[in-house]
């Protein structure tokens, strides 16, 4: 059996109906399997924090799904959606719209 890599995405989004559905719909569309999912409040009122782990055979499409999730979350987390994602052992940090 092929070794599946586990990818974890941490996203911040507005606490509204449908946001989680939108994220999961994207993951489902790409035929990835969700392994764990945690959603809760943050210290900022109205902002949720989502941690989603999913498995996927190849790593080369991860960059695109991260960009696509960024498009969704950036809509919701005002202009400073910050997202971390773990790819293998490396950690990348991206800022969307935040000043460098």
């Amino acid at each position: 059996m092929r070794q599946k890599k586990l990818h974890t995405i941490l996203a911040f989004a507005h606490n509204q109906p449908g946001v989680l559905y939108k994220l999961l719909s994207l993951i489902r569309k790409k035929r990835y399997n969700v392994e764990t999912i945690t959603v809760g409040h943050t210290h900022v009122e109205g902002i949720s924090r989502m941690t989603i782990s999913f498995s996927h055979g190849e790593g080369n499409k991860i960059e695109q799904i991260v960009q696509q999730i960024a498009k969704i979350t950036a809509d919701f987390y005002e202009q400073e959606a910050v997202m971390f994602y773990l790819l293998s052992e490396k950690v990348f940090i991206r800022h969307f719209g935040g000043k460098k």
Partner: peptide, 8 residues
């Protein structure tokens, strides 16, 4: 202008 299309 859509970053998810670059390197796709």
């Amino acid at each position: 202008h859509d970053p998810s299309e670059i390197n796709k």
